[in-house]
Design a protein around this nucleic acid. Structure first.
Length: 423
DNA sequence: TCTGGGGTCCTAGGACCC
DNA sequence: TCTGGGGTCCTAGGACCC
């Protein structure tokens, strides 16, 4: 049996842990740049606030309903996630973190029926007490069915945070009440196609023949179908090597138009990619820089920059990535002031383990010297915080800024912002 | 005025091989 | 006039996830 542990309204719950006054108020959390609403407490959902709604459109309504609004605080959420996962690891021999707020656990050997349910309740209650984050546990023979179980666990209080699908009757009942679009792996597009053919619920879908499913949705859809039958087909790898690593941001207001501003931004993104590559001990053989104007109607013709550079020898060296990214941007640059770029980013791809980098016969760079310098800089930054020593092209951060007008403190990661308890 | 960020997998089609 | 058969590899685009 698999368990899916899912933190309820995770980002909102993180804000609530440190501010109990929020527990009785609706809460929303915004995306980077205070752009969209990306997390909502149950009270906010009940007000009809949509996932991904543009903040500026909802602003008046949020104020009218006294909704507490927060800019994303990923430092806080990342740290809270780490705490939840650490606690969870004590309850199962095998834990696979699937996203910042979800993990699958192996529950074989922890009994069946009531005994398993009781064990599940212990998990939910321990994490709630230990971290302040409410979680739901779905238990079933496959990961897709565990997701279904968690779906019900979140919606009905009577489950006490634990919902189990462990026999044919429960499976049929759960799937019959589930709209097809709620199934993990069936997105909006496929849901609409299936619905138009009369397949409205997960149960309708499960009753189709496999050949037809294969024809309608290809091999991935067939896998989902088999999972719903109770056959375990989805394998989620522990800490897989990422095949691409991307750092990108949208810019505030109407965007950036001067080359030096874009250069600072792109250099910063390349530097972040270098850090992420080093974290997973990987190098990349290709790097893409992109920048584009607003995809919404602004009166300006849309424009995009998209340029890829290849490295003779795969690398994760900060200076090499930064200079390559800035040069790629310059190569595609078409004059200052012509376009307002709303979003830009750097993608490192063709990655390989740092221990398996292929050499190059005609390589003239002194890699040993480069590596010594990089090691020294990394050591300084590890000790004193990243970007203590940095490439000058990154600038002083004046060229571009993120909008973060509703930020909460870094309660758990910065001693100056630690929560104060009054005497 | 304002609209997120970071990934993976699959398929179709073209280029290329013998 | 007619113009084979069987592969692989790469890329772009679209779908999905949180």
């Amino acid at each position: 049996m698999f368990g899916l542990v899912d933190c309820n309204n995770f980002y909102c719950s993180c804000e609530r842990v440190f501010n109990p006054a929020l527990r009785t108020r609706p809460v929303v959390v915004l995306s980077n740049n205070d752009g969209c609403i990306i997390a909502r407490s149950n009270e906010a959902k009940a007000l009809g606030i949509a996932m991904g709604a543009p903040f500026y459109q909802a602003k008046a309504m949020l104020e009218a309903n006294k909704v507490a609004v927060f800019s994303s605080n990923y430092t806080l959420y990342g740290d809270m996630s780490r705490r939840v996962m650490m606690m969870l690891a004590d309850f199962s021999p095998e834990l696979t973190q699937y996203s910042i707020d979800e993990a699958f656990i192996d529950l074989d050997g922890f009994g069946t029926g009531e005994a398993l349910r009781e064990y599940g309740r212990q998990i939910v209650s321990a994490i709630g007490r230990g971290t302040g984050i409410p979680v739901t546990l779905g238990i079933a023979p496959t990961k897709t069915l565990a997701k279904v179980a968690a779906h019900y666990g979140k919606r009905y209080k009577g489950y006490g945070g634990v919902c189990i699908i462990d026999n044919e009757e429960r499976r049929a009942k759960a799937l019959s009440g589930l709209p097809i679009g709620e199934v993990w792996g069936i997105g909006r597009h496929n849901a609409a196609r299936l619905e138009s053919q009369g397949i409205k619920t997960a149960w309708n879908f499960a009753l189709l023949g496999e050949a037809l499913v294969r024809q309608l949705l290809s091999i991935t859809g067939a896998r989902t179908w088999r999972e719903l039958q109770g056959e375990n087909c989805i394998d989620i790898n522990e800490l897989p090597q990422k095949k691409s690593i991307c750092t990108s941001r949208s810019f505030a207001d109407s965007g950036l138009s001067a080359r030096w501003q874009l250069e600072e931004a792109v250099a910063t993104f390349a530097s972040a990619c270098s850090r992420k590559l080093k974290e997973q001990q990987a190098c990349c053989a290709s790097l893409t820089v992109f920048a584009y104007t607003s995809r919404f109607c602004t009166g300006q013709p849309p424009h995009c920059i998209n340029r890829t550079a290849q490295f003779d020898v795969a690398t994760n060296d900060t200076q090499e990535l930064v200079s390559t990214a800035v040069n790629a941007l310059r190569a595609d640059w078409r004059g200052d002031g012509k376009h307002n770029y709303k979003k830009a980013g750097v993608i490192a791809w063709n990655t390989c383990p740092a221990s398996a980098v292929q050499g190059y016969l005609f390589d003239h760079t002194d890699r040993a010297r480069q590596a010594r310098l990089a090691t020294a800089i990394d050591a300084i930054n590890r000790k004193n915080g990243h970007d203590t020593v940095k490439v000058a092209t990154l600038g002083t951060g004046m060229g571009w800024k993120l909008k973060r007008e509703h930020a909460s403190p870094h309660y758990t990661t910065d001693i100056h912002e630690i929560i104060k308890v009054k005497a």
